[in-house]
Amino acid sequence: METAQPAVRLDGVQFTTDRFRLGPIHLEVPRGYVTAIVGPNGSGKSSTFRLLLDLIKPEAGTIELLGSRPHSRNPELRQRLAYVPETNSDCDEGLRASEKAAFHQLWYPTWDVNRYQELLRRFDVDPSVRLGKMSKGMRQKLELALALAHQPELLLLDEPSSGLDPIAWKHMLETLSRYMEDGSRTILVASHLIEEVRRLADYIVVMSRGQVLGVYEKDALFDNWRTYYLIGDGLEERMLTQGPGVHAVERMGGQAYKLISSASQSTEQWLHREALPVTGQQPMELDDIMEALIARQQPFS
C-alpha cells in the first residue's frame, strides 16, 4: 500500500446494533486509486459508508477523510467529497433534475455547469423530468452527474451500477476512468459485480460479517490465487495442507484432490519439487476467492 497520507483511514472503528456488529475495522484507502469493497450482503459495506459520511457514529475508533474528521459542521471537507448511494431518498421526488442541480450548485464553489451538462448528455438524462418520475437507472445516472460536476477529490459510490442497463453501465465505467486520469482523485466503491471490480479497481477490500478479511492489490490478488487438481496413489490431505501457500484442500473422491493456493508461485515450486501429480490448474475468479477467505473467517466470540 502507499505510504502517503491515505484518502480514508479507519482505525479501530466499531459499530453495533441489536443484530449486527461491525469491526473493529482497521483500513487505509490510498489516494489516487480506485479501491473496491466486496463481500456478501450484510457484510458491513453500507454501514461503513454511513460511518464515513457521519450519518451514524462509531462506538470506538477514529475516522479520517482526506486528513480530516468527518463532521456535518465541516463544509470545507464536504465540498471535497461526493457520494452516490445505492438507494436514493424519496424526500426530493417532487423536484425536477434541474432544480436539484441548482441547489447543489449553491454548495460547491467548484461546480462546473459545462461538465454537468456534458454528463447529462452522455447519460441521456432529461433535466426537466421530476425525480419521482425517473426510473431507478435514470435517477442513478443523474446522481452520478451531480456527484462528478464539482470534481470531488474523494468519490464514494455504494453499488453505483444499481438499475443501470448495459450501455449506461459501460458509459459509467468510461466516465469514472476519465475522472481518475489526473491522478489526484480517489474512488471508494462498494460493488457486487465482479466485472466492474475487475475493470475499475486498483485495490480490493474483502469484507464479511462486519470484518475486513484483507486488502489486496488487484493484479497481485488474481495472480496469487489459483486452483490445482491432483490425482495419484499415496496423496494425503494432511500432507497437501502443509504446502507453502496452500489455503485449503478438498478431497474430490478417491485419490483426487483440489488444492487452493493464495501464493501460486510458492505453491507451484513446491509441487514441482515434490513431483506431485498435478493434472490441471486454473486461475480463480473473485467470487471464488471471497468464498475461500470467508470459509476461513473466525466467527465472533
Rank of each mutant, 00 (worst) to 15 (best):
T3S: 14
A4E: 14
Q5R: 15
P6D: 12
P6E: 11
L10M: 09
D11R: 11
T16D: 13
F20P: 00
R21Y: 07
L22F: 10
L27N: 04
E28D: 15
G39C: 02
S43Q: 04
E59H: 13
T62A: 10
L65N: 15
S68Y: 09
R69T: 15
H71A: 15
Q79E: 11
R80S: 11
L81C: 09
A82M: 11
T87A: 10
C91S: 14
A101F: 03
A102I: 00
A102K: 10
F103M: 13
H104K: 01
W111A: 01
V113C: 08
N114H: 08
Y116I: 04
Y116S: 02
E118C: 11
L119S: 10
L120R: 07
L120K: 07
L120W: 08
R121C: 03
F123R: 06
V125Y: 05
S128D: 15
S128V: 08
K133W: 13
K136V: 11
G137K: 10
M138A: 15
R139Y: 04
Q140H: 06
L142W: 07
E143F: 05
L146V: 07
A149R: 07
H150F: 12
L156P: 14
L156H: 12
P160A: 14
G163V: 05
G163R: 06
G163F: 05
W169V: 06
W169I: 05
R178N: 13
Y179D: 08
M180R: 11
E181I: 12
E181Y: 02
R185P: 05
L188A: 06
A190Y: 04
S191I: 01
D202T: 02
M207Y: 04
M207Q: 03
M207E: 02
E217A: 07
L221V: 01
D223T: 05
R226A: 03
T227I: 06
I231S: 13
E237Q: 09
M239K: 06
L240C: 06
P244D: 03
V246N: 03
V249M: 04
G254N: 12
A256D: 09
A256S: 14
L259E: 04
I260A: 04
S266T: 12
T267M: 09
T267L: 11
H272I: 15
E274I: 11
A275G: 09
Q282H: 11
I289R: 03
M290S: 01
M290K: 08
L293S: 01
R296S: 05
Q298D: 10
P299K: 15
F300P: 00
F300L: 15
